[in-house]
Amino acid sequence: MTAALRSNVSNRRFPPRQPGSYAGGSKVAQLQPSIERRSGQSQLQSTASQADIRRMVQLPAQPANPLWLRALTFAQRTSTVVTFSLVASALAVYGWTVYSQQLWGKEYQRLEALQRQERQLTAATEVLKDQMAQEAEDPASGLSIPDPTNAIFLQPAPLSQPAPVQPNPAPKSIQTAPLGY
């Protein structure tokens, strides 16, 4: 398994030491020959690699991923986000539909109760008014039907003439002496 820890860059420069060994995208340069030796591979390869190790291997600049790969990665990421948000909103919408129906039911009951109260209040008020009016008709109640003899008619006051507007006196000049020197 340790053989897998090899740079794909070194793979390109030297013949592969282990055919079929994993040469994935490891970016770690191989610096420890002792590990390689332990794996029991051919001596030739080992020597070559030792010579190779002595040189300073410089990590190459990472080449840019191809466009299609980047596009796919981007698509994957965005679709994940979109999926999660869709799921979340679907749940929210579903929850709201259930909750709003409950809410509607409650409010409808309230509306019915209020309508009933309104009806009862109207009827009760009218019954009360009627009762009072009937009681007032009884001569013993001491109340009488309004008639002209106990009404006071006031003469409407004549329209008052607005007082003539006095023209404003010309503003007196307060400044008798110039303020400045």
């Binding site: 039907i145 309004p146 008639d147 002209p148 009404a151 008619f153």
Partner: peptide, 18 residues
């Protein structure tokens, strides 16, 4: 007469000869 008296009071009809 009774009805007219009530009518005068309700509608506020001013007297013709105060």
């Amino acid at each position: 007469r009774g009805v007219m008296e009530a009518l005068i009071a309700i509608e506020g009809i001013p007297p013709s000869q105060p």
